[in-house]
Amino acid sequence: MDNKNNEILLEARDLCKYFPAKDFFGRKKAEVKAVDKINLAIRKGETFGLVGESGCGKSTLGRTLIRMYDPTSGSILFKGQDITGLKGRQLLPVHKQMQIIFQDPYSSLDPHHNVREILKESLTAVSGISASEMEGRMEEILKKVGLKPDDMYKYAYEFSGGQRQRIGIARALLVEPEFLLCDEPISALDVSIQAQVVNLLEDLQKEMGLTYLFVAHDLSMVRHISTRIGVMYLGRLVEIADSDDLYENPLHPYTRALLSAIPLADPKLASQSKRVMLSGELPSPMNVPTGCHFHTRCMYAREDCKNHIPEMVEVSPGHFVSCPYAEENIS
């Protein structure tokens, strides 16, 4: 954990994912720029947290990175190999190495299959191993995620939310991936269960040397689990930094507002903290503001913010921000 590993596992270059918005007659009306020219590098063995409000494109970015979605433009590199253009069966080896766990443990497990069938499906999809080896692996993975061997013959409805999420994790890890996209894995769980799942993810990461992309909107949990964090607003990354650095020294006006909105579980701290309130509402993703996407709600916005798209600049080692006035505004 301590020795910094700088080997890059997954990289996005100018990655875009646009969805067409259609009108009543199926004609293309507009484009939703869910992911807009994103540059990002995730290092091997780290947990990269991705935060932002609903509709900012964080889930779409995650899913495009693991090639669940086809990117509109830009490129994705996994272990140095360009996987942007792969199609159909070519994607199988990629998906074997990049897996996902979902937010809702209730709808992501097939109710007609028992745990064994759910797991087996994922194994046969990547094939190449014998039946006896398969059994062994399934038993092993169940143990790893904290379930009992006889849970194998139970159906999803017989489990609680936390246990279902464990099944989801088992399914994802069964094919021994290197990269795991955790798409809001704890937001549907009770507080007392969230910690169980977070600890499990941390243990598995150490044991199996996994790299995580952790997408979430619970900002205190993201800080806890992540090594680095990226903040998204309307399809663009506005700030990237080491997690403690980001929370102690947020630079982008949006990050500052987002962090100050976290409800603090401490009455004294909560009454002292000053909130940076955001005025107005999130603009529609179909009709995003020109220039800096945030200028309509930014208290520091100037004239040229309306026309000029800000570049990501490294202001201190490892701390990137896409606001040319960030440091000036704070001082």
Partner: peptide, 20 residues
């Protein structure tokens, strides 16, 4: 069971075992 606010420490969380 929840991360402490404003503590940079990566202290391990203490989950409540079992379920309701």
């Amino acid at each position: 069971a929840v991360p402490k606010p404003h503590s940079g420490s990566k202290e391990r969380l203490e989950p409540i075992p079992g379920m309701a």
